[in-house]
């Protein structure tokens, strides 16, 4: 039971309200503004959109322009970009899980001294520049890059594979960049697991592989959800990876939003793209939030 010390109660309001107001102002309200701009009409002005509300000659005009959303529906480009983003993020998440789960599992089961070194090794790359680590893959994947040279030198292929500027390169990039985010929550979860449960299962006659399926895997559900959400949600809106590794033909919604904003300077459409993306991600984000809140509640016990 966590009881409030009455001595803290005066400072309480103050301590809560400072970060609260900051986050409301810089995190929450901006979404409302994005929604507002998405309903406005684009204009050649600074900033490049018309106001929703105008007041002239005693007439209050409120103009809600649904045209931007209509436009998104009409043009195949957006639909395909959303679809491709969701698809890419989903398969990349699955791949991350397939690579990350065994790693997290064996890390958690390693000796305590080795475990900490391994954990540091997983975290270390994320402390170096994300951009540069993605850039490294260009040199590896391009047609006269290291991978192709290597495969040709051992005679496995005779002409270079086209990997860079394809979806495959995007998958590799996402898995590479987000792997630590998958491993960390899984590792934390698997480490906390009571090993006597596994012993109990094998004592009751369960074979190792079945024990894994029937005990370990269900118990690590929370870690799987957390890790998957940490990969899936940002991957949907990923911009750097598709623009560096995906080439001109890869349609990802983060890239489309960027182009609408920076190249076409169409802020209302960019906002509409963002609003739709947010709606698509609402369920996964809510899932992630619920998991985090549950974890916090568990720890507080």
């Amino acid at each position: 039971m966590k009881k409030l010390l009455n001595c803290f109660s005066q400072g309480r309001t103050w301590i809560i309200s400072v970060p609260y107001i900051w986050l409301l102002l810089f995190f929450f309200i901006p979404f409302a503004i994005v929604l507002k701009i998405s309903l406005s009409e684009s204009a050649i002005a600074i900033p490049p959109y018309e106001d929703l509300i105008s007041y002239a000659d005693d007439v209050l005009n409120i103009k809600l322009n649904l045209g931007n959303f209509h436009f998104l529906l009409q043009d195949d480009l957006y639909f395909l970009a959303y679809l491709n983003s969701l698809k890419t993020a989903f398969f990349a998440t699955v791949l991350c899980l397939l690579v990350g789960y065994p790693m997290a599992y064996f890390m958690a089961r390693a000796e305590a001294s080795v475990r900490n070194v391994l954990l540091m090794l997983v975290i270390l790359p994320s402390w170096t520049s994300f951009l540069i680590r993605i850039y490294a893959w260009i040199g590896i994947l391009k047609s006269n890059g290291l991978l192709n040279n290597f495969l040709m030198s051992i005679g496995l292929i005779h002409e270079p594979l086209e990997i860079l500027n394809t979806n495959v390169a995007v998958y590799i990039g996402i898995v590479y960049a987000y792997l630590p985010f998958m491993i960390l929550p899984l590792y934390a979860n698997l480490l906390k697991m009571d090993l006597s449960l596994l012993e109990a299962a094998s004592d009751l006659g369960c074979r190792p592989w079945k024990t894994f399926l029937k005990v370990t895997l269900p118990l690590s559900k929370a870690g799987i959800i957390a890790g998957s959400m940490l990969v899936f949600i940002p991957a949907v809106g990923e911009f750097v990876i598709p623009s560096l590794l995906g080439g001109a033909n890869t349609l990802m919604i983060g890239k489309v939003l960027w182009q609408e904003f920076f190249n076409n300077r169409d802020w209302p459409v960019a906002s509409a793209v963002a609003i739709v993306m947010l709606l698509l991600l609402l369920v996964p984000i809510a899932l992630f939030n619920r998991y985090q809140a549950k974890e916090a509640a568990n720890e507080a016990k």
Binding site: L23, L24, L25, F26, F27, F28, I29, P30, F31, I33, V34, I37, M229, L230, I233, P234, V236, G237, E238, F239, G254, L257, W258, F261, W267, A270, S271, A274, M277, L278, L281, P284, I285, F288, N289, Q292, A293
Partner: peptide, 20 residues
């Protein structure tokens, strides 16, 4: 508001802050 920024795609955060 503490948890969502961890997963929020950068393009959305960036655009919304700019508009703010």
């Amino acid at each position: 508001m503490i948890n969502a920024p961890l997963v929020m795609p950068d393009v959305i955060t960036g655009l919304s802050l700019l508009l703010l």
